[in-house]
């Protein structure tokens, strides 16, 4: 997946952030663009955003990470500086087949951040270590 498409995606998130901040709506042309760039997972991601399934977790050290509650009830930890999700779709469609930029969980995290719709949660630094290392996913 080329870096050009990634640049397009980042521009889309910026446009979404600007527009949603002003109007609290996503205009049709942006929806079409999201569907064009991300395929069917765009609507699935928007569904997760609407259900407030994305949580932004922070700790006193300043470390931040996103947790997305999937449709199955499992919690997926996504990092803020790069694209990774422990879900099977990310492993298959993004890493192995390289046919998608991101899975619905990662996209939901990006959209929620752009729209300011993340739930906020504070944890201790030790709890953050567990979240980052994936131990909280294993326990859910």
């Amino acid at each position: 997946m080329g870096s050009c498409l990634l640049s397009v995606a980042e521009q889309l998130f910026k446009d979404l952030q600007r527009t949603y901040t002003q109007t609290k709506q996503i205009p049709d042309d942006l929806l079409i663009a999201l569907r064009f760039v991300f395929g069917p997972c765009a609507l699935q991601a928007l569904d997760l955003v609407e259900k407030h399934s994305v949580k932004c977790v922070t700790s006193p050290s300043g470390r931040t990470v996103f947790q997305v509650l999937g449709g199955s009830g499992r919690l997926y930890t996504c990092y803020s500086s790069c694209h990774y999700c422990p879900c099977p779709a990310f492993s298959f469609s993004v890493l192995r087949r390289t046919e998608s930029l991101m899975c619905k969980h990662l996209l939901a995290a990006c959209l929620s951040q752009a729209m300011g719709l993340c739930q906020q949660e504070q944890v201790s630094d030790q709890q953050m270590t567990h979240v980052l290392s994936g131990q909280t996913e294993a326990n859910t």
Partner: peptide
């Protein structure tokens, strides 16, 4: 997934 997890965690 494990190799991606390690690399992404190091990057982050």
């Amino acid at each position: 997934s494990p190799v991606a997890h390690v690399a992404a965690l190091l990057h982050d």
